[in-house]
């Protein structure tokens, strides 16, 4: 219980520090670290893993439409409500947790254990500036880009694949989709992806900087905690965000057209 409270307090402190220090990204070594993070999280994940995540989205559409015996309208609603709004950002978040979350938590924990963080302090380099800010900012940006990538591939796959299951052409589905699509869907995905990226990177950095002990054995424990809590945070944010924006609280901030 005490540890949980300490983790919440530490996580909040780290998050506030990161928000307040985003301007430090202008400094050359921090900017380089940020670009490196974007490359590792966004560019290297944009081939195999994300393509597989997108295929998963197409499969979900196919199975759902087959089971529900969907018509054109329902197929497009599934694409927009399920794939675009929910599965796209979540699939990107899962990829980021599995690929980047594990790497960040292990790397930062190793830096702490091997004395690199102490060396940075001696050089007068703030750990938040050099370790946390570029990773959090890089992961946030990469998560947004990966989300768009997954959404694009999954929706395109769904539009191409659906005519094989239901009695509708690609053009009919695409026309209906563009009629139902509203800017709020785009902003909803972007904000959610930014929040996912922030939560994942901040959680992994926090656990990396606070290993249970300073031995090599602490690294697997750090990674396990970071990944578990990142996944729980992502699901929690997804639920709360969907509830606030489209749910019944205050009758929803946004009324969906569908």
């Amino acid at each position: 219980m005490l540890r949980a409270l300490r983790e919440i307090e530490g996580g909040l402190k780290l998050s506030l520090n990161v928000v307040g220090r985003m301007g430090r990204l202008r400094r050359a070594p921090i900017r380089e670290s940020f670009l490196r993070q974007v490359y590792f999280t966004g560019v290297t994940a944009a081939t195999g893993v994300v393509l597989r995540a997108s295929v998963l989205g197409v499969l979900i559409i196919a199975i759902t439409m087959d089971v529900l015996d969907a018509d054109t309208d329902l197929a497009v609603k599934i694409l927009l409500l399920l794939v675009f709004r929910e599965i796209g950002p979540l699939a990107a978040a899962v990829v980021v947790i599995l690929r980047t979350g594990t790497a960040i938590s292990a790397e930062v924990a190793m830096m702490r254990i091997s004395g690199q963080t102490r060396a940075l302090r001696h050089l007068g380099i703030d750990l938040y500036d050099y370790i946390v800010v570029p990773r959090v900012a890089g992961v946030m940006l990469a998560t947004v880009v990966l989300t768009f990538y997954v959404q694009f591939l999954a929706v395109l796959g769904g539009l191409l694949f659906s005519p094989l299951i239901i009695d509708a052409t690609f053009m009919e589905l695409a026309g209906r989709f563009s009629a139902l699509f509203a800017p709020v869907d785009f902003f909803y995905s972007t904000i959610k992806a930014l929040l996912f990226g922030f939560a994942i990177a901040a959680c992994c950095c926090y656990h990396g900087l606070n290993p249970p002990n300073l031995t090599q054995n602490a690294v697997p424990q750090v990674v396990t905690r970071a990944v578990t809590q990142s996944a729980m945070l992502t699901l929690g944010i997804n639920a709360v965000f969907a509830y606030i924006v489209f749910g019944i609280l205050f009758f929803g901030l946004v009324t969906a057209k569908v």
Partner: peptide
């Protein structure tokens, strides 16, 4: 910041090459 310690187990930043390690404090 006014004190520097060089110990046998020197901690260089592992994902930076030697030149980047040397120039890191000045760049920051």
């Amino acid at each position: 910041r006014r004190v520097g310690v060089l110990s046998p187990s020197v901690a260089l930043i592992t994902n930076l090459n030697a030149w980047e390690n040397i120039s890191l404090p000045a760049a920051y």
